[in-house]
Design a protein around this nucleic acid. Sequence first.
DNA 1: CGGCAGTTTGACACAATTCAATAACAGTGG
DNA 2: CCACTGTTATTGAATTGTGTCAAACTGCCG
Lengths: 229, 229
Amino acid sequence: MNLQCETCPVRDSAACAVLTPEERDAMAAAGRTRTLRRGEMLFAAGDEDAACATLVSGALKVSAIDADGNEQILALVHPSGFIGELFAPFAHHDVVALTESKLCTFARGDFERAIDDHPALTRALLRRSQEDLLATRALLELTGHASAEARLAALLHDFAAAASQSSCHLAAEFDLPLTRGEIANMLGLTIETVSRKLGDLEDSGAIARKGKRGIEVLDPALLHDISGR
Amino acid sequence: MNLQCETCPVRDSAACAVLTPEERDAMAAAGRTRTLRRGEMLFAAGDEDAACATLVSGALKVSAIDADGNEQILALVHPSGFIGELFAPFAHHDVVALTESKLCTFARGDFERAIDDHPALTRALLRRSQEDLLATRALLELTGHASAEARLAALLHDFAAAASQSSCHLAAEFDLPLTRGEIANMLGLTIETVSRKLGDLEDSGAIARKGKRGIEVLDPALLHDISGR
DNA sequence: CGGCAGTTTGACACAATTCAATAACAGTGG
DNA sequence: CCACTGTTATTGAATTGTGTCAAACTGCCG
């Protein structure tokens, strides 16, 4: 399907927002929208000419499979995020939809041409790339030293912050975008530990569990405190 | 001191290599060289207007200090690497010299101007930024699931690869650029565990220790095997 | 020589994993 | 609607890898 930039929910926040309307229309002609269902893969590690894409809605995970076949989640992608390995000959990681997701995809070659033609776009991607770098380093910091409970508290805190649009406040209630197994993979823990520590956090009064996915933040300050940041 | 690009050892591999000689000379006029001794800091987390720099020789570490005052090393910077938070209002991490290091520094404003003026430079930085991202994710992958011994083996493997110029072969012998404490911080372990596991690796015949800093790789295949990648 | 920073080694404690069993749930089809 | 099946989550008990604490050792520089 062709792109409909006029009605795109991330038209002001995605990388393409820096383009003039004319430039944007030119790019739109090369792009296609695509919808992924939960669990569907955008591309796999090793793929050549993996597509470039902007996430319009939903959520993706970037993950690697280690030697023993265990998945490790390296990053989450939220709407207006960019995905694509522009300079590597092949993709280094898998990219999979966590929920039903809409993307705006471009062939690698088309996107590289756009970068050459539009310095502002390159600049926007550089900015985004640096933000990704900071996010990855934040995760590294977290998984490096912190206890299981602190890691989990920090992740819940981040999710709560992401769920509320007003970056400074936490959402009082939200649904986990990840299964227990995915949370475990992301934090370098096991499913069982995640389950147990969620129980502990509930006992401590920081959160309440609403069914399998739902989380209610009862005490944001306590949650922040446990996360140790 | 003014820049001497003609004799710069990284003039072909650093970001500025993409500039024409004229453009490069223009940039050189805005830059200054700087030498850091081991332990000296380029900038600290929280600094405003932290400088941008290309590492000419030596090695740097990028690290964060967590709530309890523990250092966590997030990345190492090798010659031709770029350091600088271009879009953030302040630096997120500390940057410290691991060995005597020569850098080529620019004021933030000057560098931002250069980016606006030279699309090729922006592109080069984007490429570098993506490589940094991959390197950080590789470290994340490592510290996520692997055992202490596997982490250490992988780190030694990386160092041995970095020490030999011919990327595909390992150096037979090299000096650790990090103290035990720094290795521990980087891998999310303790000094004691690093020390013990180094002993185990020596017992297994993979390596031999030559004094405090020196490492001899006796069995590269075994080392790679233990690292589990 | 003494002092200091970095390293190694040992004994012990504990947090998180592993193994194992049960429970809640989401689909699917009768 | 309910039973059936696979997936995901919870809970328990035992194990173990790594951290913690403490002490001794090394090399180096003043």
